[in-house]
């Protein structure tokens, strides 16, 4: 009963907290650029405003265009639901592992790209093509991170990985560092941040994710935006869960520990959001074809992480 309750709470938490994390990143970034910036709660107001507006759909679009926002939102929400944040003791924990998580994000991407192609515009196709290009390198890198962690911990389940890390089996290992580096690079790419993509761009030719959702409006756009925010939060939570899980509540812990877990998670998300904003202000956006080097590097780091495991075992 208790895991079910926490599961529902956690499900609502990830969807409710996502705009806040995005708002925080935007605000910190604005301050670093010398602007005052909107409040952290501005994304909620934006989503609400979009929700109230009528949805305008292109004549040439098919039924796929209508259902895609729902499919994308639910797929990302589902992925966020199976990832532990405040406790590892949830009913959904055994339903999916990290491979399934990667695949669920793949579902969201697949349908977003199709929707980009659906209206039959040049910008939509451009965004879809670039997004799939980036994903075709980012997704393997993420699978290889999973691989190296599973070689270390003999599991692909995030909850059991947390257990493994908390049990103190992981010291300062080179492999873990490399895997974390790879995951950070993938996280930047997959959540559409600088230097891969710019969520705040107003120049169509540099858009990737924004170009795909260009034809969306009203409630459909609200869902797409919310899904993008949730995906960013998901990647922050993933880094926290795999590499910095300290503070998370575990099966058998009493209820107060959940509050500790919640506070720890919020603090870590806030810290990572600030780091993200600082990093984005510090670095310039990359040319499209340089992304292959960037993500190829991530893939190689993840591969090296696995290989160093054997080397360190042999030494």
């Amino acid at each position: 009963m208790i895991p079910l309750l926490w599961g529902i709470l956690h499900t609502l938490l990830v969807v409710a907290a996502a705009p806040w994390a995005t708002g925080l990143t935007r605000r910190v970034k604005a301050r670093l650029q010398g602007r005052r910036g909107a409040s952290c709660w501005q994304p909620y107001r934006d989503l609400w405003r979009l929700l109230q507006k009528d949805s305008v759909i292109a004549d040439s679009a098919s039924w796929l265009f209508h259902i895609t926002p729902y499919v994308v939102f639910v797929a990302v929400w589902l992925a966020a639901t199976i990832l532990p944040t405040l406790t590892t003791d949830m009913i959904m924990t055994p339903a999916a592992d990290l491979i399934a998580l990667v695949a669920l994000l793949g579902v969201a991407r697949f349908f977003t790209a199709l929707a980009g192609l659906d209206a039959g515009t040049a910008f939509g196709g451009l965004g879809a093509s670039r997004e799939m290009f980036i994903a075709s390198l980012g997704e393997p890198a993420m699978l290889m991170v999973t691989f190296s962690l599973s070689v270390l911990a003999h599991t692909t389940s995030p909850a059991h990985l947390v257990e493994f890390v908390l049990a103190g089996h992981v010291g300062l290992e080179v492999s873990v560092g490399l895997a974390m580096g790879a995951l950070l690079m993938v996280a930047l790419a997959e959540s559409g941040r600088i230097p891969i993509d710019n969520p705040a761009t107003h120049l169509e030719l540099t858009m990737v994710h924004e170009a795909m959702v260009l034809e969306y409006s009203g409630r459909h756009l609200a869902l797409m935006e919310a899904a993008a925010m949730m995906r960013q939060l998901l990647f922050l939570s993933l880094i926290i869960c795999l590499f910095l899980p300290w503070g998370i509540a575990r099966p058998g812990d009493a209820a107060p520990w959940l509050l500790v877990g919640l506070a720890a998670w919020i603090a870590k998300v806030a810290a990572l959001s600030v780091v993200l904003a600082a990093y984005e202000s510090w670095i310039a956006k990359m040319r499209l074809f340089r992304i292959a080097d960037f993500l190829g590097g991530a893939l190689l780091l993840a591969l090296l992480a696995t290989i160093f495991l054997y080397v360190s075992e042999a030494l």
Binding site: T11, W48, L51, Q52, K53, D54, S55, V56, I57, A58, D59, S60, A61, H66, Y70, F73, V74, A75, W77, L78, T81, M92, A95, A119, G120, T121, A122, F123, G124, E204, L214, E215, G218, R219, A222, L223
Partner: peptide, 30 residues
């Protein structure tokens, strides 16, 4: 099953709190 539950929740919430109208228009393309 969880996905279906989440989808039903999403649809209900969006349609309860948001606009339900959809208009067809020529493609925008910026």
């Amino acid at each position: 099953l969880t996905g279906v539950a989440l989808a039903i929740t999403t649809v209900l919430v969006v349609h309860h709190f948001g606009s339900q109208r959809t208009r067809r228009a020529p493609v925008w393309d910026c």
